[in-house]
Simulated assay, not measured.
Amino acid sequence: MSFSPTARPRALANWLFFVAALIVLMVVIGGITRLTESGLSITQWKPISGIVPPLSDAQWQAEFEHYKRIPEYQQLNQGMTLAGFKAIFFWEYLHRLLGRLIGLAFALPLLWFAVRRQIPRGYSWRLVALLALGGLQGAIGWWMVQSGLSVRTDVSHIRLAVHLLVALFTLAGIVWTALDLRKLIRNPQARPARLTGLGALTGMILFVQLLFGALVAGLNAGLVTDQWPLMNGRFFPGATVEGRPFLDALFNDPAIVHFVHRWWAWVAVAALILLARATRGIDRRASIAIHSAFGIQILLGIATVMSNMNITLAALHQFTGALLVIATAWGAHAVGQRR
């Protein structure tokens, strides 16, 4: 695939890696927002005016009054002080502010590169699709928040899982595109890497693990037990509510969700080892990255459970999960390179 003399694949790749770093930070802040039960502190969606936080006592009190109308306050946080509200407001505000920043960090440079005709042929549609995914992610975020504003005292764990998985899918797409662009720096005739069967299988297995990790977060299922490898003295804990249909328990029962996340991890490890071995002869750095990421992720997962969901360890667990997605995309890209 040749490109015009004005194309700048190196600048595009560096820009995309910067955006990927912002998304990783966004995932971590989102995890902290969930862990601190801060996600429902802002009850309105104001894409433009919401950039400015409350600045006066009257504005803070108005925001607090909005929060007092939802079930989370009425059933769980009655008597919360304004100072306590400001603490949870901080994380949700930071999460939304960073989302807006990522949108600008993607859209404005993309427009600049397009106007100056610096995007190689065949990449414009992919970059626009990634931008659209970012916009969709904002809509999904508000859809998620809405689920906790009327009847529930928290957001839907299913919607939270969709929110996280779309973010991680976008992250993988950005990294894959950046790696394709880096190939063009060395060889203007290089073709985009293809997704091999091994890469697709590993991605699907990791998707299941990430899905159940998101469900664990949404259901607070990490608090079911502080033991490992057993769960409250048993290998299989059984359903929290007996008599639930299998599929209902699989996705909605905290103990079952925790059990699946805990043990499917080893299926993911097996697939990741196979991918890393296939990658080793092509790009040894990617192989090392995969091994390092899943090894650290397992240790952090166990430590998080045994610490009874220590916020720092849980946030690091989510951070390493995002790095594992990057490493997996890197490895799958390496094995899918066309010579």
Rank of each mutant, 00 (worst) to 15 (best):
H291P: 07
L274G: 04
I174G: 04
W112F: 15
V208K: 05
D253P: 04
A303R: 05
S292W: 13
A167C: 08
A200Q: 10
A114K: 11
R96I: 10
V151G: 00
I29V: 15
L299W: 08
Y73P: 00
T170W: 11
F246P: 02
L219N: 01
F294R: 03
L210W: 02
W125I: 14
G30Q: 04
A293G: 10
L149K: 05
F89N: 05
A105V: 09
G203V: 05
A139N: 03
A62Q: 15
L168T: 12
A132H: 05
V24W: 05
G222F: 13
P254K: 08
L98T: 11
V24T: 04
T225P: 01
T328M: 15
L223P: 00
A172M: 07
L130S: 02
V19I: 14
P54D: 06
L316H: 07
H291G: 10
R244T: 15
L82S: 07
I311G: 01
Q74E: 07
F319E: 02
S292N: 03
V260A: 01
P53V: 12
A172W: 09
G135C: 02
A7G: 01
T177R: 11
L201M: 11
M306W: 04
S56D: 07
G321C: 12
L219R: 01
L299T: 08
G30Y: 06
A167R: 09
L94S: 14
W330T: 14
D180N: 15
F18R: 08
R121Y: 13
E65D: 15
A314W: 09
G238R: 02
G39E: 04
